[in-house]
Amino acid sequence: MSLVMKTLSDHILDIIQNSIRAGATLIEVMVEENKIDDICTLQIIDNGCGMDKKTMEQATNPFFTTRKTRKVGLGLSLLKQNAEMANGKFTIYSEVNKGTTIEASFQFSNVDRPELGDIWNTLYLTMQGNENLELIYEHKTNKNSFKFSSAEIKSNVEGVSMQQTEIRTAIIDFIKNNIKDIQ
């Protein structure tokens, strides 16, 4: 297995899985591409079970995991490493029974900044694969911002499966076109 997290989208997909495992029913993802201030930030807020202080301190330790199926937990440590490599920062804030917020920043012009990647696929697959999850996504650039929620999408395609080819393509295009428009 080659361990690569190539893009910001891969990290987002990964962190969302953490939130889901923590029992989150609402996840807010925010990406800001700020070329003027030369910074790219990612913020993910969930309403999952949260962590106590001791667990939180261990969260970015690659040899720490709460899973019973394996002994390592690389997700957050990889994000932290990628942020720091790109002259950015990684912070985590968590409160038991309230939820967890993670924030990662990258210097926009840094060669080591992971590219955004196919965020539209990440968001579509997250909505498709987790029926009861409410997902809110916001994308900001110097030009404008774009925000949607999975509830809005679902209510507009109600009655047809999200897997249905035309619907799948339309949802992915909706996200992709709106992000491309403000980039």
Partner: peptide
């Protein structure tokens, strides 16, 4: 589809998309 760090790093996202597309 297994979508934890290990899965994603090995290309699980493309695999999930493939299953959605093909089965449909």
């Amino acid at each position: 589809v297994g979508m934890a760090t290990c899965g994603i790093a090995s290309g699980a996202k493309e695999i999930m998309k493939y299953f959605v597309e093909e089965l449909e």
